[in-house]
């Protein structure tokens, strides 16, 4: 396959992990109880670790003195290839949990295929990350069930979270150019299989959580091709400020 598609695809995986990791890190010190504050911060750390591995690989492929830092801190909004779902504001705890559940489940089934893909490095990164993602899926699905099948208040909040987030889930399964190129070059990824597995998991957890899946929803797309919601600009403004204002500063 051409290197450009592989770089773009790797950046897409990296950006998803970085932006969601950043969003989760916003909870640090604000979680509803100490243990869950620690849990969401641990998940943030896992995701940022994944992002680092993907960025290091993308930097190696890019050459021209690119580094994991230059890719994370010096690209602009339109160059970020993350799904819209991960850049949305955290909302309340229920919304954060539901987003984590949607996304971790997607990552879980995607990585399960990627670990057997034709690219040695992507396979190694995802083989490792899959173990951590398993914990994320387990933790977030338990919370979706607790809150969905919990009190009147928690149920209302989960229903609201489903309304807010559902229309951002479709994008994960619609392949864009670099994904199609990657998949057609021996990656062996079949997004329709990921989608089926994802649907099945969501259905079983929602059933236990007494939540229903919205039907015939219109889906937002664009993030994977750099067309983002306004929110990603604010995330980058905070994340990149230091490197933009004081180039190459270190501590």
């Amino acid at each position: 396959m051409n290197t450009k598609s592989l770089i773009d695809y790797t950046l897409h995986l990296a950006d998803n992990a970085l932006i969601l990791g950043h969003r989760n890190s916003e909870w640090c010190g604000h979680g509803p109880v100490l243990e869950q504050d620690i849990a969401i911060s641990n998940i943030a750390l896992d995701l940022i670790g994944q992002a680092r591995n993907f960025y290091q690989y993308a930097a190696q492929l890019t050459g021209n003195d690119a580094t994991e830092d230059s890719l994370a801190y010096l690209r602009d909004e339109r160059e970020f290839k993350n799904c819209l779902l991960v850049e949305l504001p955290n909302g309340d705890w229920g919304q954060t949990i539901l987003r984590q559940f949607f996304f971790s489940t997607y990552q879980y089934f995607l990585y399960r295929q990627l670990q057997k893909c034709g690219d040695e490095q992507l396979s190694a990164i995802t083989e490792k990350a899959l173990k951590e993602v398993s914990y994320h899926v387990r933790w977030s699905s338990e919370w979706v069930i607790r809150l969905g099948d919990g009190t009147e208040e928690s149920k209302q909040r989960m229903l609201h979270a489903v309304d807010e987030l559902w229309s951002y889930t479709g994008e994960m399964f619609v392949a864009v150019g670099y994904e199609l190129s990657a998949f057609s070059h021996g990656f062996g990824i079949d997004l329709s299989v990921v989608k089926n597995d994802w649907d099945e998991k969501i259905r079983s957890v929602f059933e236990e959580a007494t939540l229903s899946i919205p039907v015939n929803a219109w889906m937002h797309t664009g993030g994977k091709e750099g067309k983002h919601t306004e929110h990603v600009g604010f995330v980058l403004a905070e994340m990149q400020f230091l490197q933009r204002a004081y180039p190459n500063s270190e501590w």
Partner: peptide, 9 residues
Amino acid sequence: LVSQFGSTA
């Protein structure tokens, strides 16, 4: 089990 996630990863 108190929490699946502890003081370190």
